[in-house]
């Protein structure tokens, strides 16, 4: 076991904040100035990955290094599900956080990375409580809803957050002697389910991701129980990225101040053009990868 004794704590520093996808040093600086708690360094944002197709892999370390030099906030990067060598590469270059992401093409269609073997913390996507606890059991220090990345459509993120929170409330209200059967049903480690039962929440921060495109989307997901928000394509595919980035940060923090969110939503220009989820074929859905 080489688990970093502090890595599970680092994720909590981001609580309440917004993590933004960036593809260049310039975009990273915009994100930092807007108040992002971290940036996700990528070669292509999810909307472009979706549009261009092909195999999506870990970003060139050169891009990640450019982003790291440009900002002082933590820098994250994505690896393919199950690709522990990509994760070792990112760990070797000193990345702050790794996202084992369904947005990239999975390298392993059965197993995820054993994240307990790494010093660097990981974030994983999940659609429900069972999936979230399986990833935490593998060593993930942060969970995010999968949503449907690159669509600019928040419906799947809402569905996944509602599902997760409903299941957490159900487990919190169960009798303790019902937990083992529930653990079997969810396919989740019993000890982690016991934590949820006792605390009424996940043992790690639970962010929302996948389709967030406006300040109102960010506030909606905070209301539904998200500890923070990832914004992928929604900022740098909008008409005014700087204004959109600042507005989403403020809306995520002040999610129940509706007058403020109204002001933040005014004059932002065109948000990212969205995709109706129902028009996606099953094979085009990223959220079904790596469950």
């Amino acid at each position: 076991m080489f688990e970093h004794p502090l890595k599970d704590k680092i994720a909590w520093l981001k609580n309440g904040g917004v993590i933004m996808d960036v593809t260049s040093a310039e975009q990273a600086k915009i994100a930092e100035a807007a108040g992002a708690v971290a940036v996700m360094a990528l070669e292509r944002v999810p909307a472009d990955i979706r549009a261009q197709g092909g195999v999506a892999r870990m970003a060139d370390p050169r891009i990640i290094e450019e982003v790291r030099k440009a900002v002082s906030i933590p820098v994250m990067a994505k690896v393919r599900i199950g690709h522990f060598i990509e994760a070792r590469i990112l760990e070797a270059i000193g990345i702050d956080f790794i996202d084992e992401s369904e947005v990239l093409t999975p390298a392993d269609d059965v197993y995820h990375i054993d994240k307990t073997q790494f010093r660097v913390p990981f974030v994983n996507g999940a659609r429900d409580l069972g999936e979230a606890l399986r990833r935490i059991g593998e060593g993930s220090a942060m969970i995010r809803t999968k949503g449907e990345a690159g669509t600019g459509n928040v419906v799947e993120a809402v569905r996944h957050m509602r599902q997760m929170m409903q299941e957490i409330r159900k487990v919190a209200n169960m009798s303790k002697d019902e937990l083992m059967v529930e653990a079997k049903r969810l396919g989740a480690p019993y000890e982690l389910l016991l934590y949820v039962h006792e605390h009424g929440r996940l043992p790690v921060p639970n962010f929302a991701a996948g389709g967030v495109a406006t300040p109102a989307d960010a506030a909606l997901l905070r209301h539904l129980g998200a500890d923070g928000v990832f914004v992928g394509s929604g900022i740098f595919k909008s008409e005014h990225p700087e204004k959109m980035a600042r507005a989403i940060v403020e809306a995520a923090a002040h999610y129940d101040d509706y007058e403020r969110i109204a002001r933040l939503s005014t004059g932002l220009g065109e948000p990212m053009r969205g995709i109706d989820i129902d028009t996606l074929a099953e094979t085009e859905r990223l959220s079904v990868r790596g469950v």
């Binding site: 520093l13 981001k14 904040g17 917004v18 930092e32 100035a33 807007a34 108040g35 992002a36 708690v37 971290a38 002082s72 906030i73 933590p74 600042r246 940060v249 403020e250 923090a253």
Partner: peptide, 11 residues
């Protein structure tokens, strides 16, 4: 509490 300082500054 402890936080990412740039994010706290912005808010």
């Amino acid at each position: 509490p402890s936080a990412v300082p740039h994010a706290l500054y912005r808010l």
